[in-house]
Design a protein around this nucleic acid. Structure first.
Lengths: 404, 404
DNA sequence: CCTACTATATTCACAGATCGAACTAACCGG
DNA sequence: CCGGTTAGTTCGATCTGTGAATATAGTAGG
C-alpha cells in the first residue's frame, strides 16, 4: 500500500482510512448495506478494484453478500448488496464520568451487542483502581456476551477533557484531581493486553453520532452535555481533535464578562452559567425538591428536567435560562465550525433535550449565517451512550491493518 | 497516481497534496530548502521514491539542486539541498475589500515577486465592474513584472465572507450588497482565461501565514481583522473551510447578551462591539481628530491606533476596550480549535497589533486550557498582505497536476 | 420461450508507484 | 590511502489500481 499523505500521522485528526481496504469497510459500515457499484462512486475506485478488494474481504470473513439490491428495476442486473459481518470482530467502548461508567460492546458492523451502565467511581477516584476495574468489567462484559475474546480488537476509553491525547488525562474536572498526568491509555493497554485509545467525551460523542445520521452530512458537530459541556467536530467521518485533543471546549468560552467563577479558573464560562452543576445549584437555591438525588450532578439535573416537563414553572424557568446560554454556545459552534448539522447529545440531554432543542434551533436560525446556509439542529436519542459508542467506533476505525 | 482517499473532493478542506509529487513540492516550498533525506522523513516515502520523483521534478524544471547541506559534519556525505525553482511558475493573489484592492504576484517557491495596492472599489461596487478591473490590473501586474503570462497558474481571489465556496459571494458586508449571489469565481475565470479560486479573507490569511511560521506548527489559527473580524484554521498546511466556506466567523459570535445590533442581524456580535467600524464610531463620538480619514474604516482605525500609540489616552482607552472584547474572541478560538499558535493578522492589526497583542496573550494564558498546553500568540508583520498572499498560496497548492 | 436491452460484476493484460536490498558517492579523520 | 559514516542511486519485485472486453442476471416485448 502506498502512503501518499500521512506517514507521520497527521495531527489533529483521528486516522482517516488510508488503505482502500479500510476505506471500503468504513463505507459499507456507515451505509449498513452497499453494492459494489455504489462503492465505486463513493470511493472513486474502479469496479475491478472494488471487486478485488471485496473478494479478499469476503475471503477474510469480514464482509458478506446480503442478497439482491432493491432499487426500482430499470432492466439490468440487480446489485448484490454487501454488508459487514458483524460477528467478525468486536470492540469495546467505555465512557467514564464521576457519576457513571458506561460500557458498550460493538460488533464489526458497528452494531451494539451489549451495553452496561455501572455507578461511577465517584469523587476523588484513584485512577489506578479505575483502570483495574475497567479491565475487570471489560473482561466480564465480553465473557457474558459470549464473544470470543480473540476477536476483540481493542478498547476505546473516553473521559471528560481536557487531556493530552495518547498520554494521559491532564487537567480533569474538579472531582478528578488525581487523574492529572495519569497515563490512562498505556495503563489500560497493559492491563488488558489490547490496543486502547483515549479520547475526550464530547469528541467521541461526535463520532458516536456517525451511524445515527445519514452519511452525506460530511461536516457536523455534536454539542455534548454530561457533567461538563463540550463539543466535537466531525468531518467526513473523521473527528477533529485539535493540537492536544481538546478542541471544542465550548464549556469554557466566556459568554458573560465578569460572570461567575468557573472551576477552570475563568469567569463567565458557559459551563459555569448553564452546565448541569449550575442548574442543580440554582434549583437547590430555589428550594426545588430533587428527591434522592443528592450528589450526582447529571441525575439531579435530570430530575429537574423531569419537573420542568411535568409543568413545574420554577424548574422550567431554570432550565430555559440554561438553554438560553447554551444557545450562545450552539451559535458559536455554528459560526466557528460552519457545520451542516448540529447534534445535541450526552446524558444531560437525554431527558432535558426536548426543552433545549427548540431554543437552540431558534437562535441558530435567527443568525444570518445560520439562516443563509441552513444549519440543522437535532437531538440524539442515544444521548446516554453516545460517548461510549463513539469510543468504540473510533477504535473500530483505527484498526487499519485488517489482517485476516 | 492512485487516489486512495478523496475521489469526491473532501468537503471542509482545501486540497491536501494527494500525489507524492505535490506533497514533495509542498514540503520543499514550506521549508525553503530541503535535502532528500529530510524528505524521506517528512513524507514517509522511501529514499528510492524520493530520488525518482525529485528527478522528474528537476527534469521538469520545477526543482533545482542548491548546493551542499550545512549541518555539522558527522563524517558522511553532505546532503544535497533542493529548492523550488521560483521562476518555474507564478500565481496571483487578490484581496478585495471596500477600502483597498491588494495584488500579489507570487513565484513557485512562494516568494513575493510584486505587490500592489490600489484603492478599493468603495461602497456599493458593481461586481461585474470589479471583475473587469481585477482582470485588467492582474494583466498589468504580470506584464510589468516581466513574467511570462504562460507561466501563471491562476488567481486566488479573496473577499470578506460569508460566501459559498466555488460559486459566489453570498451575503457580503453591508456595503457590498450587490455582491449577493454573484458568481465571482467563474466570472474571473472567464475574464482571465485562468483557473481562479475563491476564499474568504480570514481563511486565506491563515494560509498566508504558512511560510511565515515554522512548519512544525501543524495546528494554528489566524485571527484576522480588516473591515470585519474573522479567523481561519490551518492544519498541516491545509486550511479548514467548513461546510460552506464560512468557518471561523468569530466576528459574529455573541459576546454580550443584549449587546448592540450588528449589520448581520444579530446582537452583541464581537464585530459590532470591537470591530474597526465600532472603534471609529466611538472615536468620532469622543470627538477625536481623525484627520482626513472620513470614510475608510481601516484607514480611520489606523489613525486612531496611531493616536493611541503616541499617547492619546482617549484613543488608547477606546482601542483597549476593543482589545478586551477581541481577547474573548481569541479565547474562543483557542478553546474551539485547540491550536498551538494564534497569529494576529490583517490590515487592521498592521498598526494596532502591538496594542492588541499583550491583551490577547494575557487572556489566553490565563485560561487553564491555554496555560496547560501553551498556546502561543504572535503578531504577523505582514498583516496588510496576508490575505492576498494566502490567496496566492492556496492557488499554488491547488495546482495538483504539476504537468511539465 | 426466445431475443433484445440494461445494468452489474468479473477477467485479464498492463501501467505506475513504491519498496527492500544492494550498491555507489562524497566527505572525515587518522 | 583506508575504514567509518552518511547520502543518494540502481534494480528487480510487489502491489494497487486502470481500461477494455466479457460474463452474469435480471426486465420487456414479440
Amino acid at each position: 500500500m502506498q502512503q501518499v499523505s500521512d506517514s507521520s500521522p497527521s495531527p489533529g485528526y483521528d486516522p482517516a482510512p488510508t488503505s482502500s481496504r479500510a476505506l471500503i469497510v468504513d463505507r459499507i459500515r456507515s451505509a449498513g448495506t452497499l453494492s459494489r457499484v455504489e462503492l465505486t462512486q463513493l470511493t472513486g475506485l474502479t469496479a475491478p478494484s472494488i471487486t478485488a478488494v471485496v473478494r479478499r474481504l469476503i475471503d477474510d470473513g469480514l464482509v458478506a453478500e446480503a442478497g439482491r439490491g432493491t432499487s426500482a428495476s430499470t432492466g439490468g442486473k440487480p446489485r448484490t448488496l454487501l454488508q459487514i459481518r458483524g460477528a467478525a470482530r468486536y470492540v469495546v467502548g467505555v465512557h467514564l464520568s464521576v457519576d457513571s461508567l458506561t460500557y458498550v460492546l460493538v460488533d464489526y458492523a458497528g452494531g451494539v451487542v451489549a451495553r452496561w451502565r455501572r455507578d461511577g467511581p465517584g469523587d476523588e477516584s484513584d485512577p489506578e483502581e479505575v483502570v483495574q476495574r475497567v479491565a475487570l468489567e471489560t473482561g466480564e462484559l465480553i465473557e457474558r456476551s459470549g464473544v470470543d475474546p480473540a476477536l476483540v480488537l481493542g478498547l476505546g476509553f473516553v473521559c471528560p477533557g481536557p487531556l493530552i491525547r495518547n498520554r494521559g488525562v491532564t487537567s480533569a474536572p474538579p472531582s478528578m484531581t488525581r487523574w492529572v498526568g495519569f497515563p490512562v491509555r498505556s495503563r489500560l493497554q497493559e492491563r488488558l493486553g489490547l490496543p486502547a485509545l483515549l479520547e475526550n467525551d464530547a469528541t467521541a460523542a461526535a463520532a458516536g453520532t456517525r451511524l445515527t445520521t445519514s452519511h452525506d452530512v460530511s461536516v457536523m458537530a455534536a454539542l455534548f452535555m454530561s457533567e461538563g459541556i463540550g463539543s466535537g467536530l466531525r468531518l467526513n467521518g473523521n473527528v477533529y481533535q485539535g493540537a492536544h485533543g481538546n478542541a471544542g471546549e465550548v464549556g469554557h468560552i466566556c459568554v458573560q464578562i465578569g460572570g461567575p467563577r468557573c472551576w477552570c479558573g475563568g469567569t463567565g464560562c458557559l459551563e459555569a452559567l448553564a452546565g448541569p452543576a449550575a442548574v442543580v445549584a440554582k434549583a437547590r437555591a430555589a428550594g426545588l425538591d430533587l428527591g434522592s438525588h443528592r450528589h450526582s450532578g447529571v441525575a439531579a439535573f435530570a430530575a429537574i428536567a423531569r419537573l420542568a416537563l411535568s409543568g413545574d414553572s420554577r424548574a422550567e424557568a431554570i432550565i430555559k435560562d440554561s438553554a438560553a446560554w447554551m444557545a450562545l454556545g450552539a451559535q458559536t459552534i455554528a459560526n466557528m465550525y460552519d457545520v451542516q448539522l448540529l447534534v445535541l447529545t450526552g446524558p444531560a440531554f437525554a431527558v432535558a433535550g426536548t426543552i433545549y432543542l427548540p431554543i437552540l434551533q431558534e437562535r441558530i436560525l435567527s443568525s444570518v449565517f445560520g439562516r443563509s446556509v441552513g444549519t440543522e439542529v437535532v437531538l440524539d436519542e442515544r444521548g446516554h451512550d453516545a460517548a461510549a459508542l463513539g469510543a468504540a467506533l473510533l477504535m473500530l476505525k483505527s484498526e487499519h491493518a485488517v489482517s485476516a
